[in-house]
Write a protein that binds this DNA or RNA. Structure first.
Lengths: 211, 211
DNA sequence: AGGTAAACGGACAAGGGTTGTCCGCTTGGT
DNA sequence: ACCAAGCGGACAACCCTTGTCCGTTTACCT
């Protein structure tokens, strides 16, 4: 929320020193919040009109304060990526490496499962502002995984680079073969994957670690 | 290939008894093959022009024999779903339930990983012709999983409905946090997941099995 | 209360993508 | 050599997108 406040402030910043009208600020707040929800529900492909509609304002109002649709989307995504970064920081300070890793994994998978926009942002090639965050995130993954492996809690026949893929996998929801995933499917998936990560390997992993 | 032949034959079938010209048949073959590759590489969102371009023919040629883009896509998808059904049949006849399950899982995940169109077809709400195949496929999953569980090879705290989600998860490829998956990432994912499926559970799974 | 500038909403233009058609030209088969 | 079947791709029609513009409304200040 504090994040969201500063985001709104940045958008409201005006070249002239004039203080903006109260309804203007309220509408920008609504737009940012609507964008956040829409990105989660619809994904990064959401349209400006759709966000305006959800915010209960016209498109004109959208474009008065927001430089472009892409700018708003990047704002929202960067905000969430920074949250993920904080989660990783906290997990890295856990006394128990395995417990810290599991805690982070759960938060990460949950965020991915609940916001398809974040999954897309993490998955696809993306804007300049995000690339920097992704690099930090990779560092976090490396740190958490290697610590858990060093503590003997995680199998060592896989590379830290495998773990982002496995956690992305755990977040796979939607539906398959006509079955619709419940809200907790990601937790069930994650449990199985964590069990697979902990136990002794059943032979050499095929292929090489991703670069 | 024999599948593909009959598919082409169906498309070439003409109201009048006239035998079609050789170039016409060749072009339809090329179109079906191009559609298959395009569905794998691009997904079910591929356009008619794109398929024609890949086949090296004009759009006019596309629409002469093919009733609609959707019809062609469904044709291609049904073909692959039927292949998957055959794989499941074969796996169900394996003497060793766990080995049979693993063999099917590997083929299934591989197909999903290598054809994003199939993943989409399995994942999304879909056309009438596919729904029937999905139902058969669910039956196959249930059979394979319950057999492996009855043999004591697979943990029993999860439902057969969880397994399609886990295998869909294993097929997750593309890229995450800026890392691009190699050709064998799905094999590495699957290995970890299979290890997680086999071993004794680490407590009750959260939530309920998907309906 | 009333004046005024800021803000609003949504019709609109412009652009890009889609499916599917049509017709002048080419080519395979007899 | 003939000619119908087949070909290619320009084209129409449609949909959805982003972003602009302007007549109307509204918050704020005196």
């Amino acid at each position: 929320m504090s994040q969201s406040r500063s985001t709104v402030d940045r958008l409201m910043a005006d070249a002239s020193g004039r203080r903006p009208r109260a309804d203007a600020r309220r509408n920008v707040e609504r737009l940012v919040e609507a964008a956040r929800i829409a990105v989660a529900e619809v994904g990064v492909g959401v349209s400006a009109h759709e966000i305006a509609r959800r915010a209960g304002v016209g498109v004109g109002t959208f474009y008065r304060r927001i430089p472009s649709l892409d700018a708003l989307l990047e704002l929202v995504l960067v905000e969430i990526l920074d949250e993920i970064g904080e989660l990783a920081d906290r997990a890295a300070q856990d006394r128990d490496p395995w417990h810290g890793f599991c805690a982070f994994a759960a938060s990460y998978v949950r965020l991915r499962a609940e916001s398809c926009g974040i999954s897309e942002a993490l998955g696809g090639a993306c804007a300049t502002g995000l690339a920097e965050r992704l690099e930090r995130l990779r560092e976090h993954f490396r740190c958490l995984v290697e610590r858990a492996q060093a503590a003997g809690a995680m199998r060592t026949d896989l590379a830290w680079q495998d773990v982002p893929f496995l956690l992305a996998a755990a977040a796979t929801g939607g539906s398959t073969v006509g079955l619709r995933a419940g809200d907790q499917q990601w937790e069930r998936n994650l449990r199985v994957i964590l069990d697979g990560l902990r136990h002794a390997p059943s032979g050499q992993l095929p292929g090489a670690a991703p670069a």
